[in-house]
């Protein structure tokens, strides 16, 4: 119990998030009850959320470094489109069969996504381009490649086996959701328990001190953005499978939401702070609200308003927590100075 209390205090943001999520869950249970809490709704939520959730994790990774990845949705669409080109190519399908085609398409999408992310990392780590500017540039570029190669039209006509993936379930749980959970657990594990994850927190906290402590900043940054790119690639595949087509401009609203979810999860936009596991909670929280909004028949625009207010409110909450923290630390320090003086 004492331990729990201590850990709650040490991560106030996460604690607030936990309570906030529980409060929302209870509130919705009372007001809406089975309208939200039913098996079918949970299943449809699981279908909808996977592609976005993967992106949110990518965004969270970039923000842990004190950066941001504006190109993540563009990268996902580009990967999806490249994947779609392979899948809809009748010649490949005819000569290799469904299984091999899908395998190639998936590999292509993952490679495209990872290379796209790696290029972000290269610009940021090796050329010292500001993350906002670098990913703004690649966002434009990736969207450009996508539009140029498709003429802005959707690419569709996939083998049945692939689109089945988008609707398949294992004892009620969508396959896409399982893929997401596996990736999420890997990312959370890597960032929480490995030396590499630790390094990322260090760089996000103070990149100069990290460099002076023999951390290879540039390599770490490239890897993180490549990871974000890989996740974008996965998301691209998920979108293609679920929607049965790939198109530029799909999921435009994901950008803002991914940042919102990361901030909500307590990941500081200036880097080095926050837990990746918080993203799971933040996702649960926003998704359940999302379906409550649907029950209440909110327009997409009102939803946007609410997201914006939540983002701002969360920034303020974090700011206040930081302020209280500093106050407490000042006291501790004065105590130590007094001891030193003795």
């Amino acid at each position: 119990m004492k331990k729990l209390k201590a850990s709650m205090r040490s991560d106030l943001t996460l604690t607030i998030l936990v309570f906030f999520t529980i409060a929302i869950l209870v509130f919705l249970a009372i007001t809406l009850g089975p309208k939200v809490y039913n098996g079918r709704n949970f299943q449809s939520m699981a279908f909808q959320i996977s592609e976005f959730a993967v992106l949110a994790f990518g965004m969270g990774l970039a923000m842990l470094l004190g950066g941001i990845d504006l190109s993540i949705v563009a990268n996902a669409n580009l990967s999806g489109i490249m994947c779609a080109f392979v899948l809809s190519n009748a010649a490949i399908v005819a000569s290799l069969g469904d299984g091999a085609t899908i395998a190639i398409a998936v590999i292509v999408a993952l490679v495209v996504g990872t290379v796209g992310g790696l290029f972000n990392g290269f610009l940021i780590a090796k050329c010292s381009v500001h993350p906002i500017v670098a990913t703004l540039g690649t966002m434009t570029l990736y969207n450009g490649i996508s539009t140029a190669s498709t003429g802005g039209n959707g690419v569709s006509g996939f083998p049945k086996a692939f689109t089945n993936l988008g609707v398949a379930t294992v004892s009620g749980v969508p396959v896409l959701f399982i893929i997401f959970m596996v990736l999420a657990i890997i990312v959370i594990f890597v960032m929480t328990y490995t030396g590499f994850g630790k390094k990322i927190y260090m760089i996000g906290e103070n990149h100069t001190a990290a460099r002076f402590s023999a951390i290879n900043n540039e390599k770490c940054i490239m890897i993180i953005y490549a990871m974000a790119g890989f996740l974008a690639g996965v998301s691209g595949i998920m979108i293609s499978a679920r929607v049965n087509s790939s198109k530029v401009g799909y999921g435009d609203t994901y950008q803002l939401q991914a940042i919102l979810v990361a901030v909500l999860a307590g990941i500081s936009p200036s880097g080095g702070k926050g837990k990746m596991a918080g993203i799971l909670l933040a996702l649960a929280c926003t998704q359940i609200l999302q379906s409550a909004f649907t029950v209440w028949q909110f327009t997409p625009y009102s939803k946007k308003l609410i997201w914006g207010v939540m983002l701002l409110a969360m920034l303020f909450v974090n700011k206040i927590i930081d302020y209280l923290d500093t106050q407490k630390q000042k006291q501790l320090l004065d105590l130590q100075l007094a001891q030193d003086a003795e």
Partner: peptide, 17 residues
């Protein structure tokens, strides 16, 4: 960047709502 991203949603959300 983050602040104006939030206000963008809020301004536009207010208008449309």
């Amino acid at each position: 960047f983050i602040i104006t991203l939030a206000t963008q949603s809020i301004f536009h959300g207010c208008l449309t709502t």
